[in-house]
């Protein structure tokens, strides 16, 4: 198929491409979420450990 045909998807472009776009968002979100959670946790724990060292 030509590039034009690829984007046109036989007239169903809106349906096909919005499905794939939503899929991309969902997959990326699932990868990013644990990365952000992990970062946040390390910041939290580092802060706590620093505090504990100061208090001891």
């Amino acid at each position: 198929m030509t590039l034009q045909e690829f984007f046109h998807m036989g007239g169903y472009a809106v349906y096909v491409w919005s499905s794939y776009a939503i899929a991309l968002v969902v997959l990326v979100a699932n990868v990013v979420a644990p990365i952000l959670q992990r970062r946040k946790l390390f910041v939290q724990l580092a802060r706590r450990q620093r505090r504990e060292r100061r208090e001891s």
Binding site: M9, G10, G11, Y12, Y15, V16
Partner: peptide, 8 residues
């Protein structure tokens, strides 16, 4: 019958 829409 579904053309290219089936690619979903």
């Amino acid at each position: 019958q579904q053309g290219d829409s089936y690619r979903i």
